[in-house]
């Protein structure tokens, strides 16, 4: 699904946000990107949905050469993937239903497809009963679920999440991660950039750790810290 080969992202001031990264992520995988702030997690995600282009290297997402993608081809790439952010990025003057439908409307979907798909997706994220409410009337967890519904509305094969639980309390965090797991079980590839050690340690999925723009560890069923669960750190 995702293939990065020798990818470097350097800013004009010479700082390297990512330094010679190579990474393969298969179809249906669930991967955590971990590391301190400023280690390049968000930059890596941005390269995948072509918010930025790499300075060097090759990036392939779902068979598309993203590093060479022309500007006018970017919308086609983005219709194949969903993106979720820490701050939800919902439109406050639109209801939950309208926010989710918006993603289909602006890509030219037919009304009957929208009428069919939106209730189904809202049902999946558990927000069907709040579809007429505005984001300001929802809890943070519900807002994030609405954002996930919007990311999923076009049935993407890949879901990119940038600190999806960063603004949530532990109970909402658990709910969101369970939702992401359910989505993953249906075959969607999920990449989550996070600081949240508890989440990573509890879920025991693949963990890619970044430091100073480089991949330092890549473990199947890993912990936030190399080979150590949270309880072991606390007791040690």
């Amino acid at each position: 699904m995702i293939s990065l080969r020798n990818v470097t992202l350097a800013y004009p001031n010479g700082v390297r946000a990512l330094d010679n990264i190579s990474l393969e992520i298969g179809k249906g995988d669930f991967v955590f990107l971990v590391g301190h702030s400023g280690t390049g997690k968000t930059s890596l995600l941005r390269l995948l949905y072509r918010e930025m282009a790499p300075s060097y290297g090759e990036i392939i997402v779902d068979g598309i050469r993203v590093d060479r993608l022309k500007r006018r081809r970017v919308p086609a790439l983005r219709r194949h993937l969903g993106v979720v952010f820490q701050d939800f990025k919902l439109l406050t003057d639109k209801t939950v239903w309208e926010n989710v439908a918006f993603a289909m409307q602006v890509t030219g979907a037919h009304t009957k497809d929208i009428m069919r798909q939106v209730p189904r997706t809202l049902d999946m994220v558990g927000l069907a009963h709040k579809s007429r409410m505005y984001p300001g009337e929802l809890s943070a967890g519900e807002q994030q679920r609405a954002a996930i519904a919007r990311a999923l509305i076009n049935n993407p094969k890949l879901l990119l999440c940038d600190e999806p639980t960063g603004n949530l309390d532990p109970a909402n965090t658990t709910e969101i991660m369970e939702l992401l797991q359910r989505i993953n079980l249906k075959g969607t590839t999920i990449v989550v950039a996070t600081h949240n050690q508890a989440v990573v340690d509890r879920m025991r999925r693949r963990v890619v750790r970044l430091e100073d723009g480089r991949i330092v560890t890549d473990e199947e069923r890993g912990y936030y810290y190399l080979g150590l669960g949270q309880s072991q750190i606390l007791s040690g």
Partner: peptide
């Protein structure tokens, strides 16, 4: 600008925006 950013994120074409 927020709406435009979301449109771009979900794959709206420039012509549509």
């Amino acid at each position: 600008r927020r709406e435009i950013a979301i449109m771009q994120l979900v794959g709206a074409t420039s012509a549509f925006i």
